[in-house]
């Protein structure tokens, strides 16, 4: 299979291989996530892939309440990476309803059935 041309497919393939990448604009130096073809800060197309440090801070948090048969309760958080971009994700440890806004977290790529997904774990040292 040839290398995918679109950034969405490329980003997912890298995740599937265990690599979490974000973009950086070489024109305006802004970081970009989710992946774009065009920089949302400056309108340029000079976006390069970089590996983020993986560290970030929980910006907002909820627990989706579900019946056990539907998978049980699950954490959904918005995480601000130290590079300045935000993404939706899940704080996998500790257990979901313990997550607090301001918690420092570290990314991890979880691969299930060949499909990669960025999740986060709480870091020692707790909240900012």
């Amino acid at each position: 299979m040839s290398e995918p041309k679109g950034v969405e497919a490329f980003h997912q393939l890298e995740l599937n291989a265990g690599h979490f990448l974000i973009q950086r604009c070489t024109d305006c130096t802004g970081h970009v996530y989710f992946p774009r073809e065009v920089c949302p800060h400056c309108g340029g197309t000079s976006l390069e892939w970089i590996a983020p440090k993986g560290t970030g801070t929980v910006y907002a948090v909820t627990t989706v309440r579900r019946k056990a048969g539907d998978g049980g309760d699950i954490n959904v958080s918005l995480v601000d990476l130290d590079e300045g971009v935000r993404l939706m994700s899940r704080i996998d440890s500790p257990v979901s309803n313990a997550t607090k806004i301001g918690q420092r977290v570290k990314s991890r790529v979880q691969v299930n059935d060949g499909k990669g997904l960025v999740v986060f774990d709480a870091m020692q040292g707790g909240a900012l």
Binding site: V64, I74, V76, R90
Partner: peptide, 16 residues
Amino acid sequence: YEPVLPASAYALAASR
């Protein structure tokens, strides 16, 4: 990440 949309989005805003 399996949010229940739209409710979880508004829940995130409320949390903040």
